[in-house]
Design a protein around this nucleic acid. Structure first.
Length: 946
RNA sequence: GGGCCUGUAGCUCAGUUGGUUAGAGCACACGCUUGAUAAGCGUGGGGUCACUGGUUCGAGCCCAGUCAGGCCCA
């Protein structure tokens, strides 16, 4: 008789091979066809809400692997809140305006225009149409890539910063802020990109190595034309804008006498300047303290005006230069502040195209020489027309003491990659210190939970140190600033006007501002009781994109229907529970959102803010787009998903502590794949042994289980508790560690291994078998649920094979309730000791096997002496004990009678077992043939065949 | 140059208020199994806790500095 056919061998259609690349897209198709997201939302209607507000990625290019990390983390959290029973809608967003898109679109339009022989069609309205098309195209592309990652959300109705309703809400928020007096018109040096013809935000500037033409220039004193203050600058073109010189009153200065002329520099820089200017230490005449320089006035080296000396102790250093700093208030931040303090104009004699020019700030006789007019300051190959012209004048006037190329880190325009210049010009600003606003912001920061905690330090520093917010941009692709100008050229910015325009934008889109002329717009927007001057022109500026994304709380969280639940009504109900972005956003979106929300709505828009690190290479250095030598994998989400599948990428994200940097490497992903296989096989083992189990009718309760079942169940519930705790703390790497280790150790190596005999060999409805199936069923279900936020595809796949699950019932829509269960302390104690004995036995078995006493553990006779509390209970169930100790035959001798001592064993010995191998259950038994009807198998097996 | 942060086995993580020979899983090596089988089990090797100095009876944990890396800023 073929006894193999009488065994309950495992059976399942849950495949061992994951085949993620094939199966994931199929499952996605089904999820969206059946509207899983909508189903979950309606099933959770009325439940306590949880709002994670999505920070909008820029609608440009493929989804970067770092962006994928961000979205996956958000998806973990949303899904975990959902299976915890919360109503947690996810409304993804995109940031659609801004320079990068406009730059690219304009480039393309120029190219086309050139080949077509005409530059027509480059007006703002056409540029905007092309930009919108471009942005929407990438919204579509990225949407598909996010979905492929398994990120679930309302992809049919995302929020876009270019939507009419969004723009209108943004403008209304802007109107509130204008009304409260935050916004002013001012002249200020701002980063200016010459090719892009725009002011740049700090975020749009990147530092690169740059070689500047640095010069040492002598400024004669009014009191003594032979005495000179020596300045050093790396931007000769700013010399025509020089209005003062700064020194440090705490430094020591030294006077040189060279060819009858006196030159002053800081002592600390003496040897440096000597070598540059060709002086010698012998020419040093005297030294003096910087404090005596007060009230001294110098003359501009080539323009007819004075350049007074002022103390600038906090920015004049003795680490480079001469200890005297040339001050041009229109061309530098320190210069500007010093100028404000001393009443100097923000003089910036450079036009939009980067050419030197005269301005109305100074009388004509104090303007720069005519030969400088029209010279471009844009640097090409290390020099510029303006620099050359200034150098020429300096050489001719004998004021140039030295010149050399100077390599340093210098700000560059992030798009055109050209050096940016500081240029004073009219802009709109938000005044950060308006009515104690900065202090309020600091308080608002205190009210927020920052995770990790040091995030607070970062945003604190960002807000504390930030200057007024320059919010205007001279670009087309953005939300227009609804300002007008009167006949005098004076700006009109009025909250009522802005609100009228917001209504127009809501109805017709913001193109209305660009398509209609000033007269028409003014007619639409002019308040009925307007008493101010009449508008004759409209502003061409757009709002900084950080105003766009920073308005999302007002435009999305406060407005979207999904978020207007009964538990979010009134008070601070509009505040989001969580924002989650990379740590670079402390200065970016977290800050802009905070400031705008505080100014407009009076408090921070979030309760807590979570940040993650950045993707780094295997050597933990910054991910580079191009590496020297050889092919480099594009760092897009697609590149990884296409090779490994989304669940592997997600598990890899979960495997590392995201608060630090995340290492992205093939090797790392491969080890994660190994873990994935372990998890998948465990699920498969469990499912395959549940093929004939009906949870409704076959389930047994813990009291009816064997001690081993209770042991694993207690372990499992402990795992559920730690996983729950880890999820609550957003520590996904702990979820990963706890689950992968539980799967490998407790389940695979112990429980699943030990329980095979009873599952296979006992008759199907044997209570011991049903007991184990009951535990397996509970664990399999719990594992699917615990894994579901991370392994979204695999958890669902296994869930469908789970007995008793209705067709179409998604693991993602169910509620996961972590169990909590413990054995009695007596049982725990007894079995803790049992495991210690097991460990010792396994060691001895291995030794015996090496010494060839036995072939394999199943042939072993294990004997030892047992004493202490619970020892007699071992004797009650030697089958379980034997199974537990992994041997064939047991010979336990009870010794002593002191049952209050802890369980203990001595004299452990391993020998070859008696009996022979049962062909049915493969165990070594002494009672083979004891049953007449089944003479070749063991007694236990024979009983099962009745 | 400044601010914030990170640095424990090949990889990912634990290491409780400083206290016995620093732990786990994976990977690796060797063996077993072939009724979880493109699976499973057992055993084993592997760490000057980035480095240097200090505080202490005692430091992976505390202090100072150095180096390397990341983000932000200048």
């Amino acid at each position: 008789m073929e006894y193999k056919n009488t065994l309950n061998l495992p059976k399942t259609d849950f495949p061992m091979k994951a085949d993620l690349l094939k199966r994931e897209p199929q499952r996605l198709e089904r999820w969206y066809r059946e509207d899983l997201y909508g189903k979950i939302q309606s099933r959770r209607a009325g439940a306590p809400s949880f709002v994670l507000h999505d920070g909008p990625p820029f609608a440009n290019g493929d989804v970067h692997i770092g962006t994928a990390l961000n979205k996956i983390l958000k998806d973990f959290i949303i899904r975990r809140e959902t299976i915890a029973g919360k109503y947690a809608p996810y409304i993804p967003g995109w940031d659609c305006h801004g320079l990068p898109i406009e730059f690219k679109v304009v480039q393309e339009m120029r190219k086309k225009a050139k080949s077509g022989g005409s530059e027509d069609g480059l007006d703002p309205a056409s540029i905007r149409t092309a930009c919108e098309e471009y942005a929407l195209k990438y919204v579509g592309i990225q949407k598909g890539q996010f979905k492929r990652l398994g990120v679930l959300g309302d992809w049919d109705q995302p929020y876009l910063t270019l939507n009419r309703a969004y723009e209108a809400a943004e403008l209304r928020l802007f109107a509130d802020i204008v009304e409260k007096g935050f916004v002013y018109r001012g002249k200020k040096p701002v980063y200016w990109s010459i090719p892009c013809r725009t002011a740049l935000a700090e975020a749009e500037v990147e530092y690169q190595d740059h070689v500047s033409q640095s010069v040492y220039v002598a400024f004669p004193l009014t009191s003594d034309p032979e005495a000179h203050v020596v300045i050093w600058t790396t931007t000769p073109w700013t010399l025509p804008a020089n209005l003062a010189i700064a020194y440090n009153s705490r430094l020591e200065y030294v006077e040189y006498l060279v060819d009858g002329k006196k030159y002053w520099i800081a002592s600390a820089l003496a040897s440096d300047v000597e070598s540059k200017c060709g002086w010698t230490p012998e020419q040093r005449v005297r030294s003096f303290s910087g404090s005596v320089l007060e009230n001294i006035v110098a003359l501009h080296p080539f323009i007819n005006r004075e350049s007074p000396l002022f103390a600038g102790d906090h920015f004049v250093e003795d680490s480079a230069g001469t200890g005297f700093v040339h001050v041009a208030p229109g061309h530098g931040t320190d210069d500007y502040h010093l100028g404000l303090e001393k009443g100097l104009p923000t003089y910036s004699p450079v036009d939009d195209a980067g050419r030197l020019t005269w301005t109305s700030d100074l009388p004509e006789d104090q303007q720069m020489p005519r030969e400088l007019l029209g010279k471009s300051i844009l640097q090409k190959k290390g020099s510029s027309e303006a620099n050359e012209a200034v150098l020429e004048i300096l050489k001719n006037s004998g004021r140039l003491l030295a010149q050399e190329d100077y390599r340093h880190s210098y700000p560059h325009c992030w798009r055109s990659k050209t050096p940016v210049v500081f240029r004073g010009m009219d802009q709109w600003f938000v005044r950060i210190d308006h009515e104690g606003f900065r202090d309020n912001a600091m308080k608002a920061i205190d009210s927020v939970e920052w995770v990790p905690q040091w995030g607070r330090n970062r945003i604190d520093a960002a807000v504390q140190g930030r200057p007024d917010w320059c919010i205007s941009r001279q670009r087309s692709w953005g939300v227009p600033i609804p300002a007008f100008y009167d006949a005098e050229g004076e700006p009109i910015l009025d909250a009522r006007v802005i609100r009228k325009i917001a209504d127009e934008v809501e109805n017709h889109g913001s193109n209305v501002w660009f398509e209609k002329d000033a007269e028409e717009l003014w007619k639409l927007a002019r308040p009925e009781d307007w008493t101010g001057s009449e508008a004759v022109a409209k502003s061409q500026d757009t709002l900084d994109v950080w105003i766009d994304s920073g308005s999302s709380s007002r435009a999305v969280v406060m407005r979207r229907e999904e978020y207007q639940t009964s538990d979010r009504q009134g008070g601070n109900g509009w505040v989001a529970d969580l924002y989650l972005e990379g740590s670079d956003q402390h200065r970016g979106w977290f800050q802009s959102s905070l400031l705008l929300s505080l100014a407009g709505n009076g408090r921070a828009p979030y309760k807590s803010v979570l940040t993650h690190g950045f993707m780094v290479d295997e050597d933990r250095s910054k991910i580079s787009k191009s590496k020297e030598g050889g092919y480099v994998k594009p760092q897009t989400a697609e590149a990884y998903v296409g090779q490994y599948g989304a669940d592997i990428v997600r598990l890899w994200v979960a495997s590392q502590d995201f608060r630090n940097d995340i290492v992205v490497s093939e090797k790392r992903i491969k080890t994660v794949s190994e873990t994935y296989r372990g998890i998948r096989n465990t699920l498969r083992y469990q499912l395959s042994n549940l093929f004939d189990f009906n949870p409704e009718t076959d389930s047994l309760q813990p009291e009816e289980w064997t001690p081993l079942d209770r042991w694993i169940w207690e372990k499992f519930t402990a795992v559920e508790q730690s996983v729950e705790k880890a999820y609550a703390a957003h520590e996904f790497h702990t979820v990963y560690q706890v689950l992968s280790q539980f799967v490998a150790v407790e389940l695979s190596a112990v429980y699943h291994d030990l329980v095979k005999d009873r599952l296979y060999a006992l008759k199907p409805d044997h209570p011991v078998r049903r007991a184990s199936q009951s535990v397996l069923y509970r664990m399999c279900k719990g594992l699917c649920q615990m894994l579901s936020p991370i392994l979204v595809f695999t958890a669902e796949e296994a869930w469908e094979f789970l007995p008793g699950v209705d067709q179409g019932d998604s693991v993602h829509a169910n509620v996961w309730s972590p169990e909590s269960w413990e054995r009695t302390s007596e049982e725990k104690e007894l079995w803790d000791q049992a495991f210690r004995i097991r460990e010792a036995v396994l060691g001895e078995l291995e030794k015996a096997r090496r010494e060839k006493v036995i072939g394999r553990p199943a042939e072993a006779r294990i004997s030892f002496k047992l004493s202490g509390k619970g020892a007699d209970s071992w004797m009650d169930d030697t089958r379980s004990v034997r199974e537990f100790l992994n041997g064939a035959e047991l010979d336990i001798t009870l010794v002593g009678d002191n049952s209050s001592d802890p369980l203990n064993f001595t004299d452990l010995a391993i020998n070859k077992a008696n009996g022979e191998k049962c062909p049915r259950c493969w165990r070594w038994e002494a009672d083979i043939g004891s049953n007449d009807q089944h003479p070749t198998i063991c007694g236990r097996c024979a009983e099962q065949l009745v």
